[in-house]
Simulated assay, not measured.
Amino acid sequence: MLEHVAAPAEFVREIARVLKPGGWLCARTPAKWGYIGIGARLVPNALHVAFLKKLQPNRKAEDVFPTVYGMNTMAALGHYFDKSEWKNCTYGFNGVPGYHGNNAVLFRLIQFWGWLMPRSLSAKFHIFIQKRP
Rank of each mutant, 00 (worst) to 15 (best):
F65D: 08
G70T: 08
T90G: 11
G39Q: 12
E85A: 13
V64N: 04
K32W: 12
A75M: 07
P21G: 05
G37W: 03
L52F: 14
A50Y: 09
F11D: 07
K60A: 14
E62A: 01
W24D: 10
H48K: 09
F107Q: 11
W24L: 11
F65W: 13
L106S: 12
C89Q: 11
R41V: 12
T90V: 15
P21S: 04
P44A: 06
E85I: 06
A7V: 09
V43H: 01
G78Q: 10
W33R: 06
G70V: 01
A61L: 10
G34K: 04
A61F: 08
Y80F: 15
W86T: 09
Y99H: 13
I36Y: 15
V96P: 06
L47N: 02
P97I: 09
K83L: 09
L42T: 12
A27Y: 01
K54P: 01
R41I: 13
F11N: 07
V43P: 02
N58P: 00
W24I: 08
R17Q: 09
V12F: 13
G101A: 11
E62T: 01
R17M: 06
A27M: 06
Y35L: 10
V43T: 14
K32H: 13
P57L: 03
H100A: 14
P57G: 02
P97G: 09
Y35M: 02
E85S: 13
P66C: 02
Y35G: 02
D63Y: 05
M71W: 01
H48Y: 02
P30I: 06
P21E: 04
F107T: 07
K60Y: 01
L19Y: 03
T67V: 10
E10R: 09
A27H: 00
K87A: 15
C26V: 15
N72G: 05
F81Y: 06
E3W: 01
F81G: 03
A75E: 13
K87D: 15
E14S: 14
T29G: 06
A46T: 10
P66M: 01
Y35Q: 05
Y69P: 06
N94K: 08
E14P: 03
N103K: 12
E3N: 09
N88F: 11
V49W: 02
C26I: 15
A75W: 05
F93G: 00
A16P: 04
D63H: 10
R59A: 03
G78H: 12
V96W: 08
T29P: 04
K83T: 10
L77T: 00
G98P: 00
Y91K: 14
F107M: 11
G101P: 01
C26P: 00
N103F: 12
P30L: 06
Y69N: 03
F93S: 03
M74A: 14
C26M: 13
F107P: 07
P21K: 11
F65Q: 10
G39H: 12
H4S: 14
H48M: 05
E85H: 14
N88E: 09
G78F: 05
C89A: 10
M74K: 08
R28S: 15
K53S: 14
D63M: 09
W24G: 01
P57T: 03
V68D: 05
F81I: 10
W33Q: 08
N103P: 05
